[in-house]
């Protein structure tokens, strides 16, 4: 039987959750409502007048094959960012967890990139991979590889994925490391005595016990890849070459803030919101079942 601690009355609990409700209302419900409202209009570029078009903005978008193609690009990009950032973070966390000496230094250094803003991270990677003056490009050239992400679609995708995943590795690393350290040593030692080697122990004990952390990070990283990566895309590729890295959120930014087409941009945000909500529901419904708390 679970023992619950409960507060008496309604007022105090309400008061305690009020700040969170206010923050959510101001920074989520209000803008989301605005986006839904705006998505029904086509405003003129200066925002002086608006014309009601009903679902016209959605029709315009969904009948555009280039917009539909950007769903596929987004799916590829988000999966890659999530897998790369979580995979590398887990690997590093497992290694850092085994360290006895100097683990503090490693941890600090691994957490650092998280402090770098996405747009700045984009510029850093762009410098290294600049097609003519980049350091990495130059070394690749010595190896006989001609790096050219301004025209090669696969390379462009690879570069924005790495740049987006890089800062994220730190964040994931922190959570994985905390998760690993919360696993009771006695369980692992018992398995070791039974003769299980490191990777067997990892597969059968550590990874399942880590699953709440992994699930949390999966949800958070997918949301990150969908929403927060436009800075990297903007600085590195502007969505190119052709449309190879035009993900949904970049188009929201480009059409709304650069092109001043706020109606279409709002409609795109609404679509994006629906996509991410559905994804999150799916994750909770189907993946969470396999999580052991």
């Amino acid at each position: 039987m679970e023992k619950r601690v409960t507060f008496q009355g309604v007022l105090l609990p309400l008061l305690l959750v009020l700040p969170q409700i206010v923050v959510t209302a101001v920074f989520f419900f209000y803008p989301a409502g605005q986006a839904i409202w705006q998505s029904l209009f086509i405003p003129d570029p200066f925002g002086l007048s608006m014309r009601f078009v009903g679902l016209g903005n959605f029709e315009f978008l969904l009948s555009d094959p280039y917009y539909r193609a950007s769903f596929v690009t987004t799916a590829i990009f988000s999966s890659l960012v999530t897998v790369v950032s979580m995979g590398v973070a887990l690997y590093l966390a497992v290694l850092a967890d085994r360290l006895i000496k100097g683990s503090g230094t490693y941890r600090t250094l691994l957490i650092w990139p998280y402090a770098v803003a996405p747009a700045v991270a984009g510029v850093l990677w762009l410098f290294m991979f600049n097609t003519r003056v980049g350091v990495v490009t130059w070394y690749l050239g010595l190896l006989g590889y001609d790096w050219n992400h301004v025209l090669n679609e696969g390379e462009a995708m690879g570069l924005v994925v790495v740049a987006s995943a890089w800062g994220r590795i730190s964040y994931n690393f922190l959570f994985f490391l905390a998760g690993l350290q919360a696993i009771p040593k006695s369980v692992i030692e018992a398995a070791a005595i039974d003769g299980a080697r490191f990777w067997t122990r990892f597969r059968t004990i550590v990874f399942p016990l880590l699953s709440p952390t992994t699930f949390f990070l999966l949800v958070v990283n997918v949301v990150y890849a969908f929403f927060e990566t436009f800075g990297v895309i903007h600085t590195i590729t502007s969505g190119g070459p052709q449309q190879a890295t035009t993900i949904l959120v970049y188009k929201v930014f480009a059409d709304g803030f650069v092109g001043q087409d706020l109606g279409s941009s709002a409609a795109q945000s609404v679509i994006l919101l629906v996509v991410v909500s559905v994804l999150t529901v799916i994750q909770f419904k189907y993946i969470e079942r396999r999580v052991h708390y």
């Binding site: 502007s238 969505g239 070459p241 052709q242 449309q243 480009a254 059409d255 650069v258 092109g259």
Partner: peptide, 12 residues
């Protein structure tokens, strides 16, 4: 501005 973006894509 968006048309220039389209032109960029097509020229690429």
């Amino acid at each position: 501005d968006q048309i220039r973006g389209i032109i960029d894509e097509e020229l690429e």
